[in-house]
Each structure stands twice: as structure tokens, then as C-alpha cells.
């Protein structure tokens, strides 16, 4: 394909597919349920990259985004994969 790997770009934070067995623990620590998470499109370039690495990602899986921040050190955010 020769397309750009956005994940290698310095401005793109680290994306990680959350393994299904970790999901429950994370949701509990956040005090929320899947449907209340912010969404990320399956067609998002970052998710497409993740698919390239780990094979197809079904709707309803979670992605963890790890950002570096001058004030917080590292901040973690979660997204629910949705199709459009």
C-alpha cells in the first residue's frame, strides 16, 4: 500500500488495543460502562494501523490512548471502536 503509518508520527499518541480480558477491570476502575465511553471510528487511521498489527478489530472493542502531558506525566484515555 505504501501508505503513511500515522502511529509513527511524533504528534500521534500511543494507541493500544485493550485485550478483551482487561476490559472489565478498566471499566470498573473508570466507574462506567462501554456505551458511555467516547467513540473512535473503525476507519480511524490509528485503528486501521492497529488492525494491520492484530487483525480485524470488531466493533465494541476498546482502544487505550496514552498521551504525554507536561502537567500529568502520562494520561490515559479510552475509546470504544464503532463502525460508520
Amino acid at each position: 500500500m505504501g501508505s503513511l503509518n500515522v502511529m509513527k508520527h511524533a504528534m500521534v499518541p500511543v494507541h493500544r488495543l485493550v485485550p478483551e480480558n482487561e476490559e472489565e477491570k478498566i471499566l470498573e476502575s473508570l466507574g462506567t460502562s462501554k456505551n458511555k465511553l467516547p467513540k473512535i471510528l473503525k476507519s480511524d487511521p490509528a485503528v486501521e494501523q492497529l488492525i494491520e498489527i492484530s487483525g480485524d478489530i470488531k466493533e465494541g472493542r476498546m482502544v487505550e490512548i496514552e498521551r504525554e502531558s507536561p502537567t500529568a506525566g502520562i494520561s490515559k484515555a479510552y475509546r470504544l471502536v464503532v463502525k460508520r
Partner: peptide, 11 residues
């Protein structure tokens, strides 16, 4: 009850 930010202002 949808989450907008996981931690206010990320920090």
C-alpha cells in the same frame, strides 16, 4: 453520564 474527559483537563 457519557464520559467527556477521563480526568479533568487530562491532569
Amino acid at each position: 453520564d457519557t464520559i467527556i474527559q477521563f480526568k479533568y483537563g487530562e491532569d
